[in-house]
Amino acid sequence: MPAWLASGLAYASGLSLTAGGITLLYITTRTFNFAHASMATWGFYVVYTGTVLYGGTPYRWLPLSFLFGALLGVICYLVLNRHLLARKANTITLMMSTLGYDLVLLAFIQMYCDYLTYSLKLFPRRVTMSVYDIELFGTSGASVILPLTAVAVLSLLHLFITRTKFGTAMRATIENSLLAGASGINSDWVYLASWVIGGGMAALGGAFMAMAMTGTPVLGMTTIPFMFAGAILGGLHSLYGGILGGFVVGLAEYAGVYFLAAEVGSWVLGYRMAIPLLIMAVTLMAFPQGLAGAWATMVGRAAGLRKRGVEA
């Protein structure tokens, strides 16, 4: 496997998890979660701390990373989001509240890095996680294990929301929270569950991305535009759209930079973030509702045509 594809796959898997988490939180709670940035960074630091202090492969620590992200999500819901949803706050207020939470989390990340540097004599501000990676099938472990883990997590999520009773309740709340409430579904638990899953996916995604890029305290802060780009490309209406959007954006960045650098010269490396943004801009210009919106329109039109055909 070429090097760009190996790291691109690891990065894209991480981005698809984070974009999926953003989409899930948006469709359940109408919240654009800025705190995804620092939740992702915390996910990376959980894996880093575990690997450096207790050894072993980074992959052992992924479950713990998920749990920590879920905890951060639960805190965000109980402290902020719950009260704002009860008050029917508008989208911008919901978004700003998570920004405040993100800044606090970022401060704690920085303090934690200071602590690691001072007390344990580590270098947590510039981490290359790939040195702890293992080799698998003649390529880096990250490029095999991470996409597989992402697929496994997303399959579990799919089974959860389609096959379990609680998942059905969740979908009902997403579709129509008023009717769902009337039929006895407690939306409070649904929102809490989506923060658990969304926060966990953010942390996992951050840990994944750190396997492909340099891990820094601002890892999430620098990549959050791409997480949003992935979610927007997916259309923000469908969870699967968000997951796919994140993957496409992530892989396109690595592939685009690799081929452009070979064609034009290595100076394009500095402008790599233009690629996901360009994808997002073009998508939004063509389909202001994202790809899922375009898909829904297309399906709607097709259905309309069929209906008219039947009538004729």
């Binding site: 402290v79 920004l99 405040g100 993100d102």
Partner: peptide, 8 residues
Amino acid sequence: TLMGLVIM
């Protein structure tokens, strides 16, 4: 922390 807390 201050700025984040103020917003929240």
